[in-house]
């Protein structure tokens, strides 16, 4: 078995004159959680649809678990699970029957279905609510149920399209915890669409950033951070003036220095000793109360990438 779960080569899809996905090239290794990160309309859903063989690509190729999306879609769908844009649950059926239907679809035996449903629902704290109609469950519970449905037949690969969209922060965090533990327990490859950066940071080993159908960057969230923005230092205190900013700017490795809410925020591109910056400020007459070194969030990475691309245009 190949070590690559998903291989995408110059994949494109047009809708009339709109190019929703634009020569996308990408590889997702087996057993990893891959985050596909992009703003609304970036082409994330269209990509998943093509990978499941539900939409034909306009150009390019892709294989999923070694099967061609154009000619072997059946084999792909046999071996993968999906939680798409909508949870896809039958509101008029109860939680258990929803899972049972999907278990039957994948030809699981009665005993296997029962055991698997119990295992998943227990893990997601939904076992006691299995006889309730889906329409009576909260939105967070429904999303969890839909995750269970995607995993029911123990597929080696699942697609998740913005699983926490529309959930309140508590429900979203709870779903992410469950996802993280399930993914680890089951060793499943995950292709996760999201525009939520903390979600990608929490769950994903690899992130691909997409905008307007084009891939802007791929890498580990940490690598992306380092590559785009470097680190950021925030210094608070008093006696700061423009002279200090000018001095800071002049230092090699300092990308920017500015006042933010009375603090000095310094962007670093290279390895710079923070202590040398501190002594520079003190030498110029500033009094320092606190020095905080924080990593750029994926949000910064994302904005920087989008900016970069706009500058190129």
């Amino acid at each position: 078995m190949s070590e690559i779960a998903i291989r995408i080569e110059a994949l494109s899809r047009d809708f009339g004159t709109i190019r929703a996905v634009d020569s996308l090239t990408l590889e997702v290794p087996r057993g990893t959680v891959f985050g596909f990160l992009g703003p609304n309309g970036a082409g994330k859903t269209t990509t998943i649809r093509m990978l499941l063989g539900l939409l034909a690509p306009t150009a390019g190729n892709a294989t999923v678990l070694g099967f061609d999306v154009r000619t072997q879609a059946g084999a792909i769908r046999e071996r993968s699970g999906a939680l798409l844009e909508h949870n896809g649950l039958y509101e008029r059926l109860n939680a258990e029957d929803n899972l049972d239907f999907y278990g039957r679809i994948y030809r699981m035996s009665g005993a296997d279905r029962q055991a698997r449903i119990r295992e998943l629902l227990t893990h997601l704290s939904l076992w006691d609510r299995r006889h309730e109609l889906v329409r009576d469950l909260s939105k967070g519970m429904r999303q969890k149920l839909a995750v269970a449905r995607a995993l029911i037949h123990q597929p080696p690969l699942i697609f998740l399209d913005e699983p926490t969209a529309g959930l309140d922060p508590v429900a979203a965090a709870s779903l992410r915890d469950d996802l993280a533990s399930l993914v680890q327990k089951e060793g499943v490859t995950v292709f996760l669409n999201t525009h939520n950066l903390p979600e990608a940071e929490k769950l994903c080993a690899q992130v691909g950033v997409i905008r307007d159908g084009k891939l802007l960057a791929v890498g580990h969230p940490d690598t992306l951070r380092a590559r785009t923005e470097g680190n950021r230092v925030t210094i608070s205190g008093s006696g700061f003036d423009d002279n200090i900013l000018t001095l800071l700017h002049a230092r090699p490795g300092v990308d920017r220095a500015q006042f933010v809410n009375g603090h000095i925020e310094i962007g670093l591109t290279g390895e710079v000793e923070v202590s040398s910056l501190v002594s520079l400020i003190v030498g110029a007459g500033g009094q320092i109360e606190e020095v905080r070194k924080d990593k750029a969030s994926l949000e910064d990475v994302f904005l920087a990438l989008v900016r970069e691309e706009q500058e190129v245009e």
Partner: peptide, 14 residues
Amino acid sequence: ERHTLETLLATRLP
């Protein structure tokens, strides 16, 4: 209408 169709179509069911 109830958004269950695409999920169904994404399964192995012929």
